[in-house]
Design a protein around this nucleic acid. Structure first.
Lengths: 342, 342
DNA sequence: ATGAAAGCGCTAACAA
DNA sequence: TTGTTAGCGCTTTCAT
C-alpha cells in the first residue's frame, strides 16, 4: 500500500535549517531548547503538517503509552461504565486503551499471546475468565497488571476490588431482618472469585442469625441464563422468598421472570437484591435494592496502582479493597422496624 | 524504569546459530525458510521466551495493525454491543482496537490530535460529536475512515448506516394507521444526522396520510434529558398521543416517565416507539415497538470497507445503507385491522 | 543550546 | 534457502 508521503523530523529540520535532533527536542517536554529555534521548528512543522511518529518514539523509549483493557462482555452495564471512565482517566494521563474482548468460553490462549505481543505498558484486567493464568503470565514477562473487580490468590499482582464479602453479608442480614426465610443465591460464573465472595458473605450474614442459604443457582452473569436459573429455582417447592443476584443485570432478569413468567410480585411475594448499582437499578420499573460498587474510586485506585508500577518500574504490588454501599430501594421487603404488639 | 532485559531476535539467532534475519523470517507468515532452521529457531525462541516486538515491526512495515474506535458514550446499550462485536471482528483479522472516548461536549481538538498521532491504520467513528471535522482531517492525512451509524455530506469518506429515513417513515405510517393524531418526536443530539434523518422520515410518513408532526423535543440521546423532554412534551395541552424516540434508550426513559411520573399507560394512553432494538427493548416490562438496526451487518460492512481501504491503499470510498426492520411489540397501539362496521 | 552519531528491534532488498 | 546490509523515524548520549 502506498500512503501519502509522510513528513519526518528530518524534513522539518531541513526546512527550519536546524538539525534533526533540534526538531526532536521541540517535541519533548523537558528538553532544553532556545525560544528562537523552537519557533522556527514549530513554524516549519506546521507548514509541513508534521506529526511526531509515536511508533518510532515507542521503539526507543520502550514505552507504547498504551494499556491493554481486557474484558469478556459488555452486556452488563457495569462494564461499559467502567470502560468509559477508565478510558477518560488514562487519556488524561497520556495513555491509550487497547481493547481486548475475550470470549467468555473460547480459547483464551490466542488472546493471551496477542496481549503479550502488543507491547502494552500495562494491563487492566476485568475479564472473568482467564484471569489467573493470564495474570501470572504477565507478571512473569514483567508487564504490570492490575485486576479490577477481580481477585486472585497470587501476591505478585495488584488488585482493586470492592468489599464483596461484606456486601454479601449485608444482604444476608438485611433479608433476614426483613423476615425472609428462604434466601436463594443467583451466582455469576462458577469460576468468578467475585461471585464466590459475595456468596460467602451472604452465607455468613445469614448464619449470624442462625439461618442458612436456601439454594444456589448459576446465572453466569448472563440475562438469559439468569432467567433460566430463576425458573429452576421455582421449579418445585419449597420456593425461595428472596433472591440475591450477583449482579444487577441478573437481578433485573430475575425480576422480569418473576413478574411476567412466574406471576409473582416483587417484593410482596419475593424480594430481589442485586449488586453493582448500575443506572438501570434506579429505573422506576425496578427500584432495585442493591449494593453499590464505588466505580470511580475503583478506577482511580487501579489507575494509580498501574501507573505507579509502570513509571517506577515497581515490582511492588498491592491489593486495595474498597467499601460498598447498600442502596435501599423497593425490590426487597424492608425490615420490620417496630415489633407488632400482639 | 528498568524492565527485565528483553529478548530480541538477535539473542535467538545467536542461540540457534543462525542469522538474525532467519529468525525474523520464522515469524513472518510468507517467508521462505527450511523446516530445519525453523525448528532450531523456534526451539531457541521458546527457551528464551522470545516474542517479536510488534513496535519495531510496525515502524518498518508502516502499519500498526491498530484501528481507532471513536465514540462518545457507552450509556446507550447499542454502543457496547457494537464495540464488542467490532472488537471480535477486527481481532479475527489481526487488528486491535484503540479506544477513544470523546466527551460529548468538551474540546474535541485534543482528542483529534491524539488520534492523528496514534499511528492507527484506520478509524472507525461512531461518535456523535466531532464527526465531520475529524473525518475530514483524517481523510486529509490519508488515514482511512469509516463512519458507522453516522452520516456526513462529504464524499471522501466511507459510511455505513442504516436506513434511518425509512425507519422513521415506517414509524410515521404505523402510528397513523394505529389511529394516532398527535405524534411527537424525541430527537437525539441536534447535530446528529441520524436523528435528523429519522425525523425527516417520520414527517414524510405522517405527511403521506395528510398528518403533521405534533411536536419535537430534544433528548440528546441521554436518559435524563429524555426524561425532562418528556415532561416538557406534557407540560401543556394538547398532549401527544404517541412519541417516537430516536433511540431505544430514550424510548425507555419516555416509558418510565409516562408510567411513573405522569401516570399514563403505554400504549393505552400514549404509544411509544424506539429505534435500535437493543436487548432491553425486548424485556417484558417494556415490550418496546422499535426499528431494528442490523448491527452485525453494519459491523461486517464497516470492517470490510475499512480493511479494503487499508490493504489496497484505496482512495475509493463508498456509502452503504442497510435496511432496517420494524419490530412490532406492544408499546404502540396496533393498527386497526378491520374497519368497524357502522 | 545545538549537532553528529549511535542505535531501538525489526523487515526487506540484495547477494550468495 | 540463507546471510549481509540498509534503513524505518525517533531519542539520547556526547562533543562542541
Amino acid at each position: 500500500m502506498q500512503k501519502k508521503r509522510v513528513v519526518t523530523s528530518r524534513d522539518v529540520a531541513e526546512r527550519a535549517g536546524v538539525s534533526q535532533s533540534a526538531v526532536s527536542r521541540c517535541f519533548s517536554p523537558k528538553a532544553s531548547i532556545s525560544e528562537k529555534t523552537r519557533c522556527k521548528v514549530l513554524k516549519a512543522a506546521k507548514e509541513l503538517g508534521y506529526r511526531p511518529n509515536s511508533i518510532a518514539r515507542s521503539l526507543i523509549t520502550r514505552s507504547s503509552r498504551t494499556i491493554a483493557l481486557v474484558l469478556s462482555s459488555l452486556d452488563n452495564m457495569f462494564y461499559p461504565l467502567v470502560v468509559a471512565k477508565a478510558s477518560l482517566r488514562f487519556q488524561s494521563e497520556g495513555y491509550h486503551l487497547l481493547l481486548f474482548v475475550v470470549p467468555e468460553d473460547g480459547d483464551s490462549s490466542s488472546v493471551m499471546d496477542s496481549i503479550l505481543q502488543s507491547q502494552v505498558d500495562g494491563i487492566l484486567m476485568m475479564s472473568a475468565s482467564l484471569t489467573s493464568s493470564l495474570a501470572r503470565e504477565c507478571a512473569d514477562s514483567g508487564i504490570p497488571v492490575v485486576l479490577i473487580n477481580r481477585q486472585v490468590d497470587f501476591a505478585g499482582i495488584s488488585q482493586v476490588y470492592s468489599d464483596n464479602y461484606h456486601g454479601g453479608f449485608w444482604v444476608g442480614s438485611y433479608l433476614t431482618m426483613g423476615g425472609h426465610e428462604r434466601v436463594a443465591y443467583l451466582a455469576g460464573l462458577e469460576s468468578s472469585s467475585t461471585s464466590r465472595h459475595r456468596y460467602e458473605g451472604l452465607v455468613d450474614g445469614l448464619a449470624s442469625v442462625g439461618k442458612r442459604c436456601h439454594a444456589i443457582a448459576y446465572g453466569d452473569y448472563d440475562f438469559e441464563c439468569a432467567r433460566a436459573a430463576t425458573q429452576r429455582l421455582f421449579a418445585k417447592p419449597p420456593y425461595p422468598d428472596a433472591i440475591f443476584a450477583a449482579s444487577d443485570h441478573m437481578a433485573i432478569a430475575v425480576m422480569e421472570t418473576l413478574r411476567y413468567e412466574l406471576g409473582y410480585r416483587v417484593p410482596e411475594d419475593v424480594s430481589v437484591i442485586g449488586f453493582d448499582d448500575t443506572p438501570i437499578a434506579a429505573w422506576p420499573s425496578y427500584r432495585l435494592t442493591t449494593v453499590r460498587q464505588p466505580v470511580d474510586q475503583m478506577i482511580e485506585q487501579a489507575t494509580e496502582l498501574l501507573l505507579k508500577q509502570i513509571r517506577q518500574g515497581d515490582f511492588h504490588t498491592e491489593s486495595r479493597v474498597l467499601p460498598v454501599t447498600p442502596i435501599l430501594r423497593h425490590s426487597a421487603r424492608q425490615p420490620i422496624r417496630e415489633t407488632v404488639l400482639d
